[in-house]
């Protein structure tokens, strides 16, 4: 890898769309298939089930509503972080990205309390199909949140070292934002499917 990247655009990039942006959209397409399969399984299992609990009877709707707002707010702050990075305002970028990470942590802490109260009442994944689906889908979503936290923290760390002036920096912030919005949207589907329907 050359230390002095040429300033001219490479003769490649035929589509005019940067490699990273194509890649993140393709990655999200495969993620849609992943979660789409889980949602399909949920529908199939639920329609065939003899009985299915009402989400609001067994799950904590207020906590989940709070979490929904937290995630939506974090989607706003990551857009702000991208705007600040584009405007070359490093302090503003760090602040907004930091807020995004903080809210992601809050989401997981709330999720932790939700899980432990389920365990305390003796509700485990093996208890019923409903709990199986609940723990599997929200667990997988939680792993995606963790991935997002790692990515966003990595960007902040990189900005503090030599990344801030790298020509790829703003692009990577944008890709992190796309991913984060996807994780957000998955929750927007999970929340009604599990808690409200």
């Amino acid at each position: 890898m050359s230390a002095h990247a040429p300033a001219v655009q490479s003769p490649y990039e035929n589509t005019g769309v940067p490699d990273g942006k194509l890649a993140i959209w393709l990655f999200l397409a495969s993620e849609v298939m992943l979660f789409g399969t889980l949602f399909t399984s949920y529908i199939v299992l639920r329609t065939a089930a003899a009985s299915w609990p009402r989400g609001w009877d067994v799950l904590n709707v207020p906590l989940a509503t709070f979490n929904t707002f937290i995630l939506i707010a974090s989607s706003v702050t990551i857009v702000m972080a991208h705007a600040k990075a584009a405007a070359r305002d490093k302090k503003g970028f760090m602040l907004n990205m930091g807020l995004t990470v903080l809210m992601a942590f809050v989401f997981l802490v709330v999720k932790y309390f939700e899980y432990s109260s389920k365990f305390a009442h003796g509700h485990y994944p093996s208890t019923s199909i409903f709990y199986g689906i609940y723990f599997t889908t929200t667990g997988l979503h939680g792993i995606h949140i963790l991935g997002g936290i790692a990515w966003n923290l990595g960007l902040m760390w990189w900005a503090n070292r030599d990344g801030w002036d790298d020509r790829l920096f703003i692009g990577r912030v944008e890709y992190a934002g796309l991913y984060w919005h996807f994780v957000d949207v998955v929750w927007i589907f999970l929340f009604p499917a599990l808690y409200l329907l």
Binding site: S41, L45, Y124, P125, S126, I129, Y131, G132, I133, F135, T136
Partner: peptide
């Protein structure tokens, strides 16, 4: 199903 004995 194998590890946590869910019944999918």
């Amino acid at each position: 199903d194998r590890v946590f004995h869910t019944s999918f």
